[in-house]
Simulated scan of single mutants.
Amino acid sequence: MDEEHTFEVVVGVDGSPQSLLALEWAVTEARLRHGQLRVVTGWQFPAVAAGMESLPWEFDAFQRVAQRIQARALKEVSCDGVAVSSEIHQGPAAAVLLTASKDADLLVVGSRGHGGFTNLLLGSVSSQIAHHAPCPVLIIRPKHPARAAI
């Protein structure tokens, strides 16, 4: 890494507990590398809203929810000592994060977000990112208590 390059960490935040863990890890990594952090949230219209994309109040409502999610996450995780920028984009989460990480040095996501298949070990977004990211990826899984031997 040359002297002029600032290490950039992109982190996906959707308000889930795993994305908050990912944000904590991303802040720590950016701090350790004297880098900067980009907090990215993607949103899309639910399938039942197909054809309603032109209604401006719908767009504004989804945008405001995404803004609140990001604000709450940044309030819960201390980002002291790290340059932080935030972005909200309309589109599928994986596509938004892959685009945002195009020039990043690291992409951090939680293993499970607010998707529909809660029993999967790895969510569809983190799986897509692991396979298609243009940079190294860190997928954060929550710690589970050790099971007692039977």
Rank of each mutant, 00 (worst) to 15 (best):
H89D: 09
L98Q: 09
Q90L: 07
E53I: 06
G42S: 09
A47S: 13
R38H: 10
V125M: 02
A93Y: 02
G35E: 04
S127F: 01
F117Q: 03
L121F: 12
A93H: 04
E58D: 03
F62N: 08
V39S: 08
S101T: 00
S86T: 14
G42Q: 06
P46Q: 13
A50E: 13
I88Y: 06
Q44D: 14
G123K: 02
L122I: 10
I88A: 07
H132F: 10
A130V: 05
A104C: 07
E58G: 11
S54M: 08
P46R: 13
A50M: 09
A66P: 12
E76M: 11
H89K: 12
A130M: 09
A133R: 02
H132Q: 13
A104M: 06
P92A: 15
A94M: 00
R38T: 13
Q70N: 14
S126C: 07
V96M: 07
G115R: 04
I69C: 08
V109E: 02
P46E: 12
A133I: 01
S85K: 13
L98S: 04
N119S: 15
H89E: 14
G91Y: 05
G51K: 07
W57T: 12
G81S: 09
R64G: 07
N119A: 14
A130H: 01
L98T: 02
D103A: 15
G91D: 05
M52N: 01
T99G: 11
L120R: 07
S101C: 09
A66K: 05
G81R: 05
R38C: 07
S101Y: 01
F59G: 06
P92K: 11
V84G: 08
E58R: 03
Q36A: 13
